[in-house]
């Protein structure tokens, strides 16, 4: 309330008013299922992950090696089909400490999303800080110890459990 008004006029709503049907509303939920064709570029990437290999693709025109691979170079619009394995080690480009989960629960031990510039993938340009790499999570690390530039390596699922998905890598850990 304010200094001049002790009580606002009217009756406030309560959860009970909704439960008892005094307040009318309509509830509905979405049934939206999709099956995205992964295609040539991302399909090759996922097949690589299943084999424990991170694939990039080399642009024959501007000579970048791009991860994840795709069929067209975003920068020069030339087609790309020269798939090359890159290392599963690299450097943290940027990261965050997330104290709220995917389904909005507060947690005390943060999740650590990170973009990792993989060894063997190219920097966009000499002046750019953006690099071809992989968007994943970090693990086996004290959150406070992570720095931009920390060297990390992929921790893979056991081969028998891999299914050709980005989650075939469990997380990246410092080396």
């Amino acid at each position: 309330m304010t200094a001049r008004i002790k009580n606002f006029p009217g009756v406030s709503l309560s959860e009970k008013d909704f439960e008892e049907g005094k307040i009318l509303f309509v509830h509905d939920e979405l049934k939206a299922d999709y099956a995205w064709d992964t295609g040539i570029g991302i399909g090759a990437y996922l097949a690589g992950l299943k084999r424990g290999v991170i694939l990039g693709v080399r642009c024959g025109h501007c000579r970048k090696i791009v991860v994840p691979p795709r069929t067209v170079c975003e920068w020069c619009f030339h087609p790309m089909d020269e798939y090359v394995p890159v290392k599963d080690t690299g450097m943290v480009n940027t990261f965050s400490l997330c104290y709220v989960t995917w389904d909005v629960k507060r947690i005390t031990e943060p999740e650590i999303p990170a973009v990792i510039a993989l060894d063997g993938a190219s920097a966009l340009s000499e002046t750019s800080v953006i690099m071809g790499g992989i968007m994943h999570k970090l693990g086996e690390v004290e959150p406070k110890q992570v720095k931009i530039g920390t060297r990390v390596q992929a921790v893979w699922k056991p081969e028998s459990e891999r299914e050709g998905a980005i989650t075939d890598i469990l997380y990246f850990k410092p080396i």
């Binding site: 064709d37 040539i40 991302i42 795709r70």
Partner: peptide
């Protein structure tokens, strides 16, 4: 068109 992603489908038309 199971052999291509929507991005690849668009790319082919764009080229």
């Amino acid at each position: 068109t199971p052999e291509v992603s929507y991005k690849e489908l668009i790319y082919e038309a764009a080229v």
